[in-house]
């Protein structure tokens, strides 16, 4: 519910405050490996992106890592070495993700070994995707058009445990929530028979909408929640003291390695 409190602050801030860029002493830290790897039950190739942290005031936000050895293996003893495609992106060739399998990522870089594993959990289907009229907004030509919001409903299969999910929303094939701050994750802990909510994006007539829902493990969910906390952090006055998101990668590396089962549903917004 912190999001609602945040809105409250935003309102009060906007009334009384102003913002400025400030120069602070950031010190220096040893470069750390950052991993962003994903394997799904959809078709490959799957990607693992590697980079390193950099000084706060550097013009680049990270340093790409191109000289690592990256291997993904499953719990049946199959393994595959990923190929560096440039710019710190490593790709699989033949690997196909499957539900119920635990995948392990091994990275050898700069004389250090890193390891992470993630289980590809099953996912329920989105059984309803609908759109509701939200409001009239001005389009780029200045005329008023109807904006719609998309709501999905998916049944929850609670097997005595909490399930974790992430969502991706596409408009006409373009990912709407592509930045880290737009990541949508939830658990079904406080939901009853169905999990459902409305996405915060306006859609217009003739837009094609595709919603992808993915299973994630609790570890991965905690990582994304932690990532959101860092992005939203105010330095510890009203939020918690800032901390790096809890990574599932060993040996002090940052980032996350996730395995997900993906389901999707699509529709086109029609003239009423």
């Amino acid at each position: 519910m912190k999001q609602y409190i945040n809105i409250l602050f935003v309102i009060s801030l906007f009334l009384w405050s102003c913002e400025e860029v400030i120069e602070l002493k950031h010190g220096k830290a040893e470069p750390l490996l950052v991993v962003d790897g994903k394997i799904t039950d959809g078709p490959g190739p799957y990607q693992v992106k590697l980079s390193q942290t950099t000084n706060f005031n550097n013009s680049e936000n990270d340093t790409k890592v191109s000289d690592a050895e990256v291997v993904i293996s499953d719990d049946d003893g199959n393994s595959e070495t990923l190929i560096h495609k440039g710019n710190g992106v490593y790709e699989t060739v033949n690997l196909q993700g499957a539900i119920g399998v635990t995948y392990t990522l091994d990275i050898n870089h700069g004389g250090k070994q890193y390891e992470a594993s993630s289980t590809l959990l099953p996912i329920s289907k989105i059984d309803t995707l609908i759109y509701n009229f939200e409001e009239k907004v001005e389009d780029s030509t200045g005329s008023m058009v109807n904006a719609y919001r998309v709501v999905f409903v998916a049944p929850v299969t609670k097997l005595g445990q909490i399930n974790y999910y992430s969502w991706d929303v596409y408009r006409n094939g373009r990912l709407e929530n592509k930045l880290a701050e737009d990541i949508i994750v939830s658990s079904d802990e406080y939901f009853g028979e169905d999990i459902a909510f409305e996405f915060d994006y306006d859609f217009f007539i003739d837009d094609h909408v595709r919603v992808e829902m993915s299973s994630i493990t609790e570890e991965v969910y905690n990582y994304f929640e932690g990532l959101d906390e860092v992005l939203e952090n105010d330095g510890g006055l009203f939020s918690s003291p800032p901390a790096n998101p809890p990574s599932n990668i060993s040996n002090g590396a940052l980032g996350v390695f996730r395995a997900s089962s993906v389901t999707s549903r699509e529709m086109t917004i029609r003239k009423p």
Binding site: H26, A29, L32, Q52, T53, N55, F56, A180, G255
Partner: peptide
């Protein structure tokens, strides 16, 4: 205060 930065998504 952050001691560094990295890119993610």
């Amino acid at each position: 205060i952050p001691k560094g930065k990295y890119a993610f998504q």
